[in-house]
Every structure is written in structure tokens, then in C-alpha cells.
């Protein structure tokens, strides 16, 4: 999934690096709002969670398995800015400590998975939440739809970058069809996993799910006073 070194040419890689730095700067400011002063330990632990969750294998059958990308999941769980920081840090660690994803492609990977993936997921989620009734039971299905759409949107963003700085002369329409087709399938897995994970958290600790805050805020406390029994 991670773009390696040499996939996009050097100028494009440097340009995406600059975009990634700017995006992380904005995210740092936004995350302070989402997490106030506990930003560092919270974002650090959530990043570790995303990293660990990506290692969970979900068997598809016939010996193959898929795993989570986690952009939309993180956005719904902790809010888009913190999610962007967490995904970026995860990509940095994977690139420097695990050699997954090229160092020169780090900017590209952060822009694609950390920024486009997270923002696309979050915007879809918010847009749906705005038009649909605010129900706690809807948080997980909406997260699933957001996760589904975020995957092909990220793939399209990759095609866009490839059109600018790709190194192999692949016809763009072939690449677009292949990437979209494949990622519409991958998106199904991402949607199912994201929906299931969010559902399991919403039932136990809805207060921890950032995307459920508006739903919880709308809940009214209902105080039922028992009718005083009159003794005969």
C-alpha cells in the first residue's frame, strides 16, 4: 500500500513533502483543540493503536487476508486533526523503523493516507451525519460508508499525483480503471472492519468516539419519578 522510493519523480516527491509539512502544521493546531493539553500522550497512544490495528489480519478466505488502513476509523474515533497527526506519525515510524514506504515518498504517503484518506473519511461522515437523524445506532454504519468512500478517493488522489510525477509510461485511463476497480473492492473490507470496530466501541464507551459527540449532546436526560404509592 505504501508508495516506495522511485515511484514518483524527485520534484513531485519534494512537493508532496512540502504539502505534508504544511498539513501537519495545521493538524497540530487543530489537534490542540480536540485534545487540549493532553495532546502528546493521547495522540501518541492512539497512533500506537492505529499501528497495532494495522497488524491485525482479517482472513478473506483461501489463505489471503486483508488489514485495516485506518484513516477513516481514526478520524471518527479521535477527530480529523488528531487522526491526521496519528496517521502521519505511524507512516513516519513505518518508513524509518520498518523500511515500509520510501523515505523520499514519505510526503506522498502522508498526503495520501494521512491527509486525503482521513479528510475524505471525515467529510463524508460529517456530511451524512448532518442530513440523517442523530442516532447512536447510526454512528457505526456512517463510519463504514465513510471508510468505504475514503479508499477509492485516496486511490484517485494517487492517480492524480501519478499524472504529475509518475515514472513509468502507463496510460492514465488504464491506471485509473485499475486503481479504482481494485480499491472499490478493498474499500468493502475497510468499510466492514471500520463499521464493526466503531460499533464495538460505541456500545461500550460512546463518550470516547469523537464522531458520536453530537449524538450524545442531543440526548436528553429523562428523569422518571416514581409515582408515590399510597398506602391503603
Amino acid at each position: 500500500m505504501h508508495v516506495p522510493d522511485g515511484f514518483l519523480d524527485a520534484p513531485t516527491s519534494i512537493a508532496t513533502g512540502a504539502v505534508a509539512v504544511a498539513a501537519i502544521g495545521v493538524a497540530l493546531r487543530g489537534a490542540r483543540r480536540e485534545l487540549d493539553d493532553k495532546a502528546a500522550p493521547m495522540a501518541g497512544l492512539v497512533a500506537t493503536f492505529v499501528f497495532a490495528a494495522q497488524m491485525l489480519n482479517f482472513p478473506v478466505g483461501a489463505g489471503t487476508s486483508g488489514h485495516l488502513l485506518g484513516g477513516a476509523l481514526a478520524a471518527v474515533l479521535v477527530g480529523p486533526w488528531t487522526a491526521m497527526l496519528c496517521l502521519s506519525v505511524v507512516l513516519l515510524v513505518q518508513s524509518l523503523l520498518f523500511a515500509d514506504g520510501g523515505v523520499t515518498a514519505l510526503g506522498t504517503n502522508v498526503v495520501l493516507m494521512g491527509v486525503v484518506g482521513v479528510l475524505a473519511g471525515w467529510l463524508v461522515f460529517r456530511a451524512l451525519q448532518a442530513v440523517l437523524p442523530k442516532k447512536q445506532a447510526l454512528v457505526a454504519p456512517l463510519a463504514a460508508v465513510a471508510a468505504y468512500l475514503s479508499v477509492p478517493i485516496t486511490a484517485l488522489a494517487f492517480v492524480g499525483l501519478y499524472a504529475v510525477g509518475g515514472t513509468a509510461p502507463i496510460p492514465l485511463d488504464t491506471l485509473t480503471t485499475a486503481m479504482l476497480g481494485w480499491h472499490l473492492v478493498i474499500g468493502l473490507g475497510e468499510a466492514a472492519i471500520t463499521g464493526l470496530v466503531v460499533a464495538s466501541i460505541v456500545t461500550v464507551r460512546p463518550d470516547l468516539v469523537h464522531g458520536a459527540r453530537r449524538v450524545l449532546a442531543d440526548r436528553v436526560v429523562e428523569i422518571r419519578t416514581p409515582v408515590a404509592r399510597t398506602s391503603a
Binding site: L45, T48, F49, A53, N57, G61, A192, I193, L196, V197
Partner: peptide
Amino acid sequence: NPRHWPVIARSAGALFIRSYERGE
């Protein structure tokens, strides 16, 4: 197979809650 996904997803959910609370 995918029928077992809810179980794995629940452990991922538990992992999130534990990580979040550890952060706090």
C-alpha cells in the same frame, strides 16, 4: 473467513479503549 471478523473487530475496539485510557 469474514464470518469471524466481528470477533477480531471487537478485540480491535477493546484495544482502542485500552490504549485511549492508557493515554489518559
